[in-house]
Computed example of a mutant assay.
Amino acid sequence: AAAVAWVFDNIGKYGGDTSSIYVAGHSAGGYLVDMVGLDKKQLARYGKDADKLAGIIPFSGQVITHFETRNRQGIKPLQPTIDETAPLYYVRKDCAPILILSGDREKEMYGRYEEAAYFYRLFKLLGHPDVTLYELGGFDHGSMCAAAFPLAVRFIRDHEKK
Rank of each mutant, 00 (worst) to 15 (best):
Asp83Ile: 00
Asp83Lys: 06
Asp83Phe: 01
Glu84Gly: 10
Glu84Ala: 10
Glu84His: 11
Glu84Val: 03
Thr85Ser: 13
Thr85Tyr: 10
Ala86Cys: 08
Ala86Phe: 03
Ala86Pro: 06
Pro87Gly: 01
Pro87Asp: 02
Pro87Met: 00
Pro87Phe: 01
Tyr89Ala: 08
Tyr89Ser: 09
Tyr89Thr: 00
Tyr90Asn: 02
Tyr90Ile: 04
Tyr90Lys: 05
Arg92Cys: 06
Arg92Ala: 07
Lys93Trp: 03
Lys93His: 10
Asp94Ser: 06
Asp94Ala: 00
Cys95Pro: 05
Cys95His: 08
Cys95Val: 04
Cys95Ala: 12
Ala96Thr: 02
Ala96Asp: 06
Ala96Leu: 04
Pro97Phe: 02
Pro97Glu: 05
Pro97Leu: 07
Pro97Tyr: 05
Ile98Val: 10
Ile98Pro: 09
Ile98Ala: 07
Leu99Ser: 12
Leu99Pro: 10
Leu99His: 08
Ile100Leu: 13
Leu101Glu: 11
Leu101His: 03
Ser102Ala: 14
Ser102His: 07
Gly103Leu: 05
Gly103Thr: 03
Gly103Cys: 06
Asp104Trp: 00
Asp104Tyr: 00
Asp104Ile: 00
Arg105Ser: 14
Arg105Asp: 03
Arg105Gly: 13
Glu106Asp: 15
Lys107Tyr: 03
Lys107Arg: 13
Met109Lys: 13
Gly111Lys: 14
Gly111Thr: 14
Arg112Glu: 15
Tyr113Val: 05
Tyr113Ile: 00
Tyr113Asp: 00
Tyr113Lys: 02
Glu114Gly: 10
Glu114Arg: 10
Glu114Leu: 10
Glu114Ser: 13
Glu114Ile: 06
Glu115Gly: 06
Glu115Pro: 04
Glu115Asn: 08
Glu115Lys: 01
Glu115Gln: 13
Ala116Thr: 01
Ala117Cys: 07
Tyr118Cys: 09
Phe119Ser: 04
Tyr120Asp: 08
Tyr120Met: 04
Tyr120Ile: 09
Tyr120Val: 05
Leu122Thr: 14
Phe123Cys: 05
Phe123Val: 02
Phe123Lys: 08
Lys124Phe: 02
Lys124Met: 12
Leu125Pro: 08
Leu125Ala: 14
Leu126Pro: 04
Leu126Asn: 05
Gly127Arg: 00
His128Val: 03
His128Ala: 03
Pro129Glu: 10
Pro129Cys: 02
Pro129His: 07
Asp130Lys: 08
Asp130Glu: 14
Asp130Ile: 11
Asp130Leu: 06
Asp130Tyr: 07
Val131Tyr: 05
Val131Arg: 05
Val131Gln: 08
Thr132Leu: 13
Thr132Asp: 11
Thr132Tyr: 13
Thr132Asn: 12
Thr132Cys: 10
Leu133Glu: 11
Leu133Gly: 07
Tyr134Phe: 15
Tyr134Met: 07
Tyr134Trp: 12
Glu135Arg: 06
Glu135Met: 14
Glu135Phe: 11
Leu136Asp: 09
Leu136Trp: 05
Gly137Pro: 11
Gly137Asp: 15
Gly137Glu: 15
Gly138Ala: 02
Gly138Glu: 01
Gly138Asn: 01
Gly138Met: 03
Phe139Lys: 12
Phe139Glu: 15
Phe139Gln: 15
Asp140Thr: 06
Asp140Ala: 11
Asp140Ser: 09
